[in-house]
Design a protein around this nucleic acid. Structure first.
Lengths: 213, 213
DNA sequence: GTCTATAATTCGATAGAC
DNA sequence: GTCTATCGAATTATAGAC
């Protein structure tokens, strides 16, 4: 069974922090786009304000025209992206689909978001550890809530006999792990990627595994 | 089908860099064990030589009794761990099992190594980006070779009609992603973990997915 | 918005005595 | 092996002129 609910994907709430995919008209948009790429390539800690300034052909002090601090820059990317995933998940869970259909939708929307913001997703996966004291706990807390929602959804599917009776923690961690690597494909690939084909293959892997018959 | 080849797991080549699981008799062993944990918890860049010295209750200069540089410390952990995974994989691939049996063995040995060295595995997954110029390329090259071997193995299984005809890149990335998160469970969990049960569940997820029937 | 200049701190690493 | 002392470099961030 393979169902694609495209209508929902185009209805995803739009949050305006897509500095990469948007046309870089204003200097501010270009600042965030270049910063985002730099942080992805070098890592947050290894990316200095001088690196960013140099990339934009101006001096270090000018960086502070756009942001208050280096950490605020990271927070902007991470929490913006986290909001997007949460809003998308909540919309799916609030629908009347059954657990299996909902899980299909989760996979589908996850791929959709990743395809639109692969660099932000890379930061979400790799750089969240660099958040500072109050923001870090907030981030971890929200991520835990996200994972809990997936756990509950999976458990409903087990109770429903739509999913195999697998340990909920292991299943959830594995499903999310199967989705979290995908940003690499969108960033590294030289050719245009067909997200529908990705969705088909990843869905097959998550729901039916690699074994034939 | 669920086969566990335990004999092979106990035959894994032993590489003596297990600073965590070994009893910490000598000061050197304790130095590496505490450094490893610190780097995992704070991240490599955020962990200072002063942090390490403080943890071991001596002064910064003493750190250099054990290592030549901060980067050499990271290299020790990462390349030691990489060697272990490679040796284990090569031994499996050199056997006469069929592709599906070999893939079972890969999963099994991967879990085995992770369970023995969860902190080293955490560094292997999260901290390799901090390697410097010549070592970084070497690391990436070796990891690419590892992934290529898995790709080839999967393709053999497809040709063999044992695996579904899924895109090799996507399948390989997903299989490895399903294994790479596991170190967290061994580090975070308070209760003793049954690796055989983990193996059973993860194998089921990878080979048959979450769907029932 | 852009620059120069610099403050204030932190970090990796070394020298050299004991 | 352990210590004190310190160097030199790099970093975030700010002040203030244009």
């Amino acid at each position: 069974m393979l169902i694609v609910f495209k209508y929902l994907l185009t209805d995803l709430p739009f949050i305006d922090f897509s500095f990469v995919t948007m046309k870089k008209n204003t200097k501010k948009e270009r600042f965030f786009a270049e910063s985002l790429k730099l942080i992805h390539e070098k890592g947050f800690k290894a990316t200095t304000m001088r690196d960013i300034a140099s990339k934009l052909n101006f001096e270090v002090a000018n960086v502070y025209n756009y942001i208050d601090s280096k950490n605020a820059l990271l927070e902007t990317f991470l929490f913006g992206m986290q909001d997007e995933f949460h809003d998308s998940l909540d919309e799916i869970l609030d629908s009347s689909y059954d657990p299996k259909e909902k899980m299909h939708l989760v996979v589908s929307s996850y791929i959709q978001i990743t395809s639109k913001r692969p660099y932000e997703q890379a930061l979400l996966v790799n750089e969240w550890r660099n958040l500072k004291a109050p923001k870090l706990q907030e981030f971890i807390q929200r991520r835990k809530e996200y994972e809990n929602k997936i756990k509950i959804l999976f458990q409903e599917g087990v109770d429903n006999n739509q999913f195999e009776n697998i340990d909920v923690e292991i299943a959830t961690a594995t499903i999310l792990a199967a989705l979290r690597w995908l940003y690499k494909k969108y960033i590294d690939s030289t050719i245009k990627i067909n997200s529908l084909e990705i969705e088909k293959q990843l869905t097959r892997l998550i729901f039916n595994g690699i074994s034939s018959n």
